[in-house]
């Protein structure tokens, strides 16, 4: 045969190749591939699981955010309601207070008037007393003067020493 081609040796080589090919396929390639595929599947499953968990978490987050928004709206509504109620109560209290204050003022005024009247009455009474006393005094002094004048006119200057004496 040209180039020393020998079919027996070709077959012997093929025999060797089949042994080596089978051996490497079952001992090395297949177990390593199985391991790599399983690992890939494991990682892929983990990623899918993580993705699903992520989606679930996102949904929960969205739900939570919605609940939060609802709660905020509710709180705001309650706040507004409370503010309105407080405003209304404030107005009522203010109105009552004003009313009460007016009543107090009115009664105070009435009392003050009453007191003033009483004071006036007393003052008038006192004035009257003072006036009467003053009048009495005045009358008394004017009477004595008149009497003195009378006595002077009656007794003349002779009686002067008496007057002087009295005055002295």
């Amino acid at each position: 045969m040209p180039l020393n081609i020998d079919f027996q040796q070709i077959l012997l080589h093929l025999f060797n190749f089949v042994i080596l090919g089978g051996g490497l396929y079952f001992l090395l390639y297949k177990p390593v591939r199985v391991f790599m595929d399983e690992r890939e599947k494991r990682i892929s499953d983990s990623l899918d699981k993580a993705k699903a968990q992520m989606e679930e978490a996102e949904a929960m987050k969205a739900d939570y955010q919605k609940q939060m928004a609802d709660a905020h709206a509710l709180i705001k509504a309650h706040e507004q309601e409370a503010e309105a109620r407080i405003e209304m109560e404030r107005r009522t209290v203010e109105k009552d207070a004003k009313k009460q204050a007016a009543e107090y003022l009115k009664s105070a005024r009435a009392e003050a008037e009453k007191e003033r009247e009483l004071m006036m009455e007393e003052a008038q009474k006192e004035i009257r007393v003072l006036a009467s006393e003053a009048a009495e005094k005045l009358a008394r002094s004017s009477i004595s003067n008149v009497y003195d004048e009378f006595l002077d006119s009656v007794s003349g200057p002779a009686s002067m020493p008496q007057n002087e004496h009295r005055q002295g």
Partner: peptide
């Protein structure tokens, strides 16, 4: 009883070594 080329002996040595290595790795 056959006369073979030296490459066949090389073949056997390589195949033996590779198969033993593959078994040990396995």
């Amino acid at each position: 009883g056959m006369e073979v080329n030296p490459s066949l002996v090389s073949d056997w040595i390589i195949i033996s070594v590779l198969l033993v290595a593959a078994v040990l790795i396995r």
